[in-house]
Design a binder for these strands. Structure first.
Length: 837
RNA sequence: GGGGAAGUGGCGGAAUGGCAGACGCAGCCGCCUCAAAAGCGGCCGAGGCAACUCAUGUGGGUUCGACUCCCACCUUCCCCA
């Protein structure tokens, strides 16, 4: 009997939630609410997902990006965690000892802003959110090892942030300098370059301003080449992610050389990838922030000086985006001239808005004929355009409509004329090197990572400023530098110098939260270690992360920073093996509703709690895996999940007659074609699940479609051939097959079939090739590429037999119409194409 | 402007050179029921009485055979400038 009104579980459910109970009776299946909470409690009690550090089995480290504790989970999070959980459970059932941890990216601006808005402490607000979200993640039936949980805002964690910062500092990889930086006026803090998207703050989308501030940087550029080169090793990463990182690092090879300044004992360094166009330089474009401007001001006429000052002042707060893309190319002539090191021509020095102080040394040679931006600028300001490269086969230089930016053949370039661009680049570089004016050089778009944040809710940077000793790192034995209550900030900042004991001031900036997320995957390995961030032998045991799953929005932020950190750790010998943290990376797609991103302001958020109540967690998990391939954007629909609820109910009903105490069914031993097909359906599911896991394609949507077919076949068998051994077999295997995807119902069925241990500790069903093969195949017969017959034939039918069968078919004969068969193509056990004319 | 991904029934999708539309949602019909729900069974791209024909964004190409590979274009999304 299916569950009915009288069942105690349901009476309880009715009291608890009228709506859930209504759904339950509509389904007339099983009491998902009771089963789901029962097993979640049982798994926690038994600790079956605990990862042991000394298991003999091969390890598998499965990890999803840790969430920011914003307060509530929605089904978008659920898609990420369901996929990761399915993978972790699959690997566990394939014989690996799985580490599957979870934690909280708990520092950061939203907590601080929310706390200010509510008048509470960020720590309290965050703790409350974590409490709720941990409950929700557990509610999703996930198989995390909670004994390894971390929260980055706890002193036990951020202490090691500080420790790692000091190691970076000790190796010259953390330093403070004054620089023009991205300032978000809304969040009142600076941002790293990677956190500025289209000139806007990545969090609040305010237009970013530029300010000159003294800030802490991490020297990620020291690792630029390795970060670039090792992308080639990351064959388990999506190609687009690797390409994006490659572009972000932006390595370019060229020449660094200098222009002497006329009547001044100074020079201006420039970098160019197109040294072959040197003879076409008609001006020198300098960023107004360039230090040389101060020298120039000494020799330029007074009226120019005023113009220069106002131009510079005007640009001061303009963002990079405005300067390079939005604004017209503006400039002001300084009145000074530079000397081309090879042609010895005088060219005017201009200050421009489109040259950035932070890139390529803050000055570029202006070659209007061969650079689009220089071309625009020269046109606007009436500067000469001199063509020095012509298309290889083309004839003479002509007035240009636009810049000719391709390689070609040099003209008007002294003794370099007639050389092709590639050769000219070599030759000119050599000449410059010989004269001491320049050398070959490599330039990167990647800049050092700015980690200072002028915000409260973050890891204090462990540096003290002493009036006598200057910048002093806090010694290890004084860590952690505890984040004070906000009301105690003033006293916190006043301290004694660790070196001389004199009066000193603490650094007031906190760290970018990407600092802590760059190494958290190592803390999971050893979360309670209070002598080191992690023990190297733990890293040896568990690293690298075998499968990392998370959103694509972190392609150049978190994922690049983590690679940098990991290489640093590797160089210290703190981790062993490959010097990349994440061997395989998968980006899951978004979950939309009504084709829009879910957000509180739109009021279209589908929450975990309401979904669990309405349809059950197993149904939600199945739906999220089934609705789209995981990398695609999926659309949440309330209708769609009903199909999964039905599937679960059908599963339950198909197994119910076999539950202990229900076994009165006559066992009718009989093997027919339908039974064979049923056994085959079991192995089709197993093969699909296995293939999708091993290939890391994770298209479990197709696996679940095959599960539908299996359950349909079981339902049919239950009415047509109750008690058949094939059905009995399918019932035994079904809970194992669905365990990674719908873990609760799998466990409940498993238990009711009489098993005392968890289904999640079983081995997955091994696909049986013999069961998968069919004795009879359908041979598709085509005439000139069009299907004219489908003929049943024994598997393994020979080409000759197939041809005979086809020619025997009346419809095939009609379409041949007596024409001569010129050739035929046979695909074993599948298809025969007859080509006739 | 450059680069990348995608485009298949009313909808989500399946098929990676070999039967287009698996599986599901929605819809329609039937059984069960006093009735409804649930469940079970069936139908479900278009045209045609049918044999068949057309059909995977558009137009070409390669191939015995193309949703799949190549070229051009259109549209959408993403990244970079």
């Amino acid at each position: 009997m299916p569950a009915n009104h009288a069942s105690p579980a349901c009476r309880q459910g009715w009291r608890r939630n009228r709506r859930a109970c209504t759904m339950l009776h509509m389904a007339e299946g099983y009491d998902f609410a009771a089963i789901e909470s029962k097993w979640q409690a049982r798994w926690e009690r038994d600790g079956i997902y605990r990862a042991l550090d000394d298991s003999d089995k091969p390890k598998y480290y499965a990890m999803e990006m840790l969430p920011y504790p914003s307060g509530d989970l929605h089904v978008g999070h659920a898609k990420n965690y369901t996929l990761g959980d399915a993978v972790a459970r699959m690997q566990r059932m394939l014989g690996y000892h799985v580490l599957h941890p979870m934690g909280w990216d708990a520092f950061g601006l939203p907590a601080e802003n929310a706390a200010i808005a509510r008048g509470v402490d960020p720590a309290a607000w965050t703790a409350e959110n974590i409490l709720n979200m941990r409950r929700q993640i557990k509610l999703m039936g996930t198989s995390y090892d909670w004994s390894r949980e971390i929260a980055t805002c706890e002193p036990e964690y951020y202490r090691w942030n500080q420790w790692l910062f000091l190691r970076l500092y000790g190796h010259g990889l953390a330093y403070k300098r004054e620089a023009p930086v991205n300032w978000c006026p809304f969040d009142q803090t600076v941002l790293a370059n990677e956190q500025v998207i289209d000139g806007r703050c990545w969090r609040c989308e305010s237009l970013v301003e530029r300010r000159l501030l003294s800030q802490w940087f991490l020297r990620i550029t020291a690792y630029a080449d390795r970060l670039l080169d090792d992308l080639a090793k990351l064959t388990g990463w999506p190609e687009r992610t690797r390409t994006m990182q490659r572009n972000w690092i932006g390595r370019s090879e060229g020449v660094q050389f200098s222009f002497a300044i006329e009547s001044l004992d100074d020079a201006i360094d420039v970098f160019t990838t197109r040294i072959d166009t040197l003879f076409g330089a008609t001006f020198l474009a300098v960023a107004p922030e360039h230090p040389v401007v101060q020298s120039l001001l000494r020799i330029v006429p007074r009226d120019r000086a005023a113009e220069i000052a106002s131009f510079t002042e005007n640009l001061k707060s303009k963002s990079e985006l405005e300067r390079t893309s939005l604004m017209e190319k503006e400039g002001v002539f300084t009145g000074a001239y530079a000397i081309n090191p090879l042609s010895h021509e005088r060219i005017p020095i201009w200050l421009t808005n489109y040259v950035l102080a932070e890139y390529g040394g803050g000055a570029v040679m202006g070659v209007p004929a061969h650079d689009e931006r220089d071309f625009d600028f020269a046109r606007k300001h009436g500067l000469p355009i001199v063509q020095v490269v012509v298309p290889r086969e083309g004839a003479r230089p002509e007035p240009l409509e636009r810049a000719f930016v391709e390689d070609g053949r040099l003209v008007a370039s002294d003794d370099f004329s007639e050389m092709p661009s590639e050769r000219a680049r070599e030759a000119i570089a050599q000449r410059l090197a010989a004269t001491g004016a320049g050398r070959k050089s490599v330039n990167y778009k990647l800049r050092d990572w700015l980690i200072s944040r002028q915000r409260y809710w973050g890891t204090p940077i462990p540096i003290v400023y002493c009036t006598a000793c200057g910048e002093v790192p806090v010694p290890d034995d004084q860590l952690p530098v505890l984040l004070p209550l906000r009301s105690r900030l003033a006293e916190f900042l006043e301290t004694a110098c660790p070196k001389c004991g004199g009066p000193a001031r603490r650094e007031s900036d906190t760290m970018d939260t990407f600092f802590e997320s760059s190494w958290y995957y190592l803390r999971y390995l050893d979360p309670h270690n209070d002598g080191a961030p992690w023990a190297p032998e733990r890293a040896r045991r568990w690293m690298n992360v075998d499968q990392y799953i998370g959103g694509a929005e972190h392609t150049v932020l978190h994922l690049l920073y983590s690679r940098f950190f990991y290489k640093f750790f590797h160089d210290r010998g703190w981790v062993s093996g490959a010097d990349e943290p994440f061997q395989h990376l998968f980006h899951q797609g978004l979950v939309l509703r009504d084709s829009e991103k879910m957000s509180k302001s739109r009021g279209n958020v589908v929450g975990i709690d309401e979904t669990a109540e309405r349809s059950g967690i197993d149904a939600m998990r199945l739906f999220l895996l089934y609705v789209t391939p995981p990398e695609e954007t999926s659309n949440w629909t309330d209708d769609g999940i009903t199909g999964r609820v039905r599937l679960l109910n059908r599963m339950w009903r198909a197994c119910e007659p076999y539950f202990e105490g229900n076994r009165s069914e006559p066992q009718r031993a009989e093997s027919n074609a339908a039974d064979k097909a049923l056994i085959r359906a079991v192995h089709v599911v197993a093969k699909s699940a296995l293939d999708e896991t091993i290939s890391r394609r994770f298209h479990y949507n197709t696996t679940i479609a095959k599960l539908d077919e299996l359950v349909n076949a079981m339902t049919a068998a239950a009415s047509a051939r109750p008690g058949s051994p094939a059905l009995r077999y399918a019932v035994e295997k079904l809970p194992i097959l669905v365990a990674p995807f719908a873990p609760h119902i799998a466990e409940e069925i498993w238990e009711r079939l009489g098993h005392a241990t968890s289904v999640h500790l079983e081995r997955y069903v091994e696909p049986d090739e013999a069961a998968l093969t069919t004795e009879e195949i359908t041979l598709v017969v085509q005439v000139n590429g069009k299907v004219r017959a489908r003929i049943s034939a024994p598997a393994g039918v020979t080409e000759k037999q197939a041809l005979e069968l086809a020619l025997d078919d009346s419809n095939v004969r009609v379409h041949l119409g007596g024409k001569e068969i010129r050739k035929h193509v046979y695909v074993q056990d599948k298809l025969l194409n007859l080509v006739a004319a």
